[in-house]
């Protein structure tokens, strides 16, 4: 394996959790709901994933538990913002705080318990392609899942009737309601999908990337996923570019630290956060002030019978 291949492999592993979480949040936001609690759902997925995987000895059970944990938190959020029409920003913050705390409580008995990570699967034939094969097709199942999610979501949002209805709920809830669509039910399903993706992304952190539990191990990835959605202008394909840009920066700063670049390691560690801010500013500049956000994003909807 060449050095370039090795670097690309680590970039993919760093980018995959960002991509999975971002694609889930993208669907929720296209339906008009801003869920700022990605960080909380993600870390709950990480905690529930490793807790169940260690207890049952099955990685698959761990992944399932992570997805369910993410969905459960999303359901609480949905109850507040859809059922009770509360402020979405505040409810999302509450979800982030709640998830961070609950993951600490759930994960406490598992601190420092080592565990074998989920292995990689080589796709027959395709993994034999020179260069591309080992990089793209000798990966862990999560990477394949992230590819499938992007393709599936892009197809769903762009090419299906149901996807069109979901986007209508995000552009004008009142119009979608007047046409007879169940806005709240559609938004609820979109939120659940976002929660499942965030949980899955969390499972990737605790079962593959660093296969043990540490409190606060998401370290802001959920928030970066939110930024990726903005950066991607709410388009699934661009979310891939965003996630890989941020994953690449993370790996770049690790390599720079290892290579002894004469900069304090803290400055290097701050790079992904600074790049996130810069990317947000540049994308807004490139759009010239116009917003690509779904028009009804963040506004509660109360149907009048």
């Amino acid at each position: 394996m060449t050095l370039l291949e090795a670097i690309l492999l680590t970039v993919i592993t760093a980018s995959t959790p960002l991509l999975i979480a971002a694609i889930g949040e993208l669907v929720a936001e296209r339906a008009g709901v801003l869920n700022l609690g990605v960080e909380g759902m993600m870390i709950m997925g990480a905690a529930a994933g490793i807790a169940v995987a260690i207890t049952t000895g099955s990685s698959a059970a761990g992944v399932a538990a992570a997805i369910l944990a993410g969905m459960a938190l999303a359901a609480i959020f949905a109850l507040l913002v859809l059922g009770l029409a509360t402020n979405q920003v505040a409810a999302g913050l509450a979800l982030a705080i709640f998830g961070l705390g609950l993951s600490g409580v759930v994960g406490a008995p598992f601190v420092g318990v080592p565990r074998e990570g989920i292995g990689k699967i080589a796709v027959p034939w395709l993994s034999e392609i020179p260069f591309l094969g080992p990089v793209l097709f000798r990966q862990d199942p999560f990477v394949y899942a992230s590819f499938a999610l992007v393709i599936g979501v892009a197809w769903f949002l762009g090419r299906t009737r149901a996807g069109l209805v979901l986007r209508a709920c995000g552009e004008s809830a009142a119009a979608a309601h007047a046409l007879g669509f169940k806005v709240l039910r559609i938004r609820f399903l979109a939120l659940l999908f976002g929660g499942a993706c965030a949980g899955l992304a969390g499972a990737y952190l605790s079962l593959v990337l660093t296969p043990f539990w540490t409190s606060g191990m998401t370290s802001g990835r959920g928030w970066i996923a939110l930024a990726i959605v903005v950066f991607a202008s709410w388009l699934p394909w661009r979310a891939v570019a965003g996630a890989y840009l941020f994953g690449g920066v993370t790996i770049l700063q690790l390599h720079a630290q290892g290579a002894g670049v004469p900069v304090p390691p803290q400055a290097m560690a701050a790079l992904p956060y600074v790049i996130t801010i810069l990317a947000l500013v540049l994308i807004m500049r490139a759009r010239g002030g116009g917003s690509a956000a779904p028009a009804a994003l963040g506004t509660p909807f109360v149907p009048d019978r």
Binding site: I97, F98, A108
Partner: peptide, 11 residues
């Protein structure tokens, strides 16, 4: 962390 759970619940 139970404190944080309580604080999140409260909000």
């Amino acid at each position: 962390d139970a404190t944080r759970v309580f604080q999140g619940l409260l909000l």
